[in-house]
C-alpha cells in the first residue's frame, strides 16, 4: 500500500457549510473520496492510499490541477483508491467538492 500526502495553498475557502462528504466506492477502477471541512480557509491536504505503486507524479499533477480548478480551501481530503484512472480521480474530486459545497451531487 502506498501512502501519498499532498499539501496545497488555495485562493480561498470552499463554499457552503456541510461538514463532510463521501463520494465514490472502493471498487476496481474506482475510488472513494472523503472530504472534511477541518482546515484553515486557504489550506488543502489530500492523502491518498493506493495499492498501485509508482504513480506519485501523476497523482500530484491531478491534485494540482484539481486545486487550481476548484479552490478547495479548508478541506482535508482522504482517498481510498482501487486503481482508478486519472480522469476518474479528477471527476470524483470535483464531485466531492460539489457535494460538500451544495449538500448533494
Amino acid at each position: 500500500m502506498e501512502i501519498l500526502k499532498v499539501h496545497h495553498k488555495t485562493r480561498g475557502p470552499a463554499a457552503g457549510t456541510v461538514g463532510s462528504a463521501l463520494v465514490g466506492v472502493v471498487a476496481s477502477g474506482n475510488l472513494e473520496v472523503l472530504l472534511e471541512r477541518t482546515l484553515a480557509d486557504t489550506e488543502c491536504t489530500v492523502e491518498i492510499a493506493t495499492p498501485v505503486r509508482g504513480y506519485d507524479d501523476v497523482w500530484k499533477a491531478v491534485v494540482a490541477e484539481f486545486v487550481e480548478r476548484a479552490s478547495p480551501g479548508g478541506l482535508r481530503i482522504s482517498i481510498n483508491d482501487s486503481g482508478a484512472r486519472p480522469d476518474t480521480v479528477m471527476l470524483r474530486l470535483l464531485q466531492g467538492v460539489r457535494t460538500i459545497e451544495t449538500g448533494h451531487d
Binding site: V26, N80, D81
Partner: peptide, 24 residues
C-alpha cells in the same frame, strides 16, 4: 460510525488491498 470515524479494516493492508472508510 460515519466515514469520518474511519472505522475501517485493519487487515486488508496486509494483503495490499485498499480499505473503505466505512468498511462497506
Amino acid at each position: 460510525l460515519p466515514p469520518t470515524e474511519r472505522a475501517q479494516s485493519p487487515h486488508l493492508a496486509l494483503f495490499d488491498l485498499p480499505a473503505a472508510f466505512d468498511d462497506g
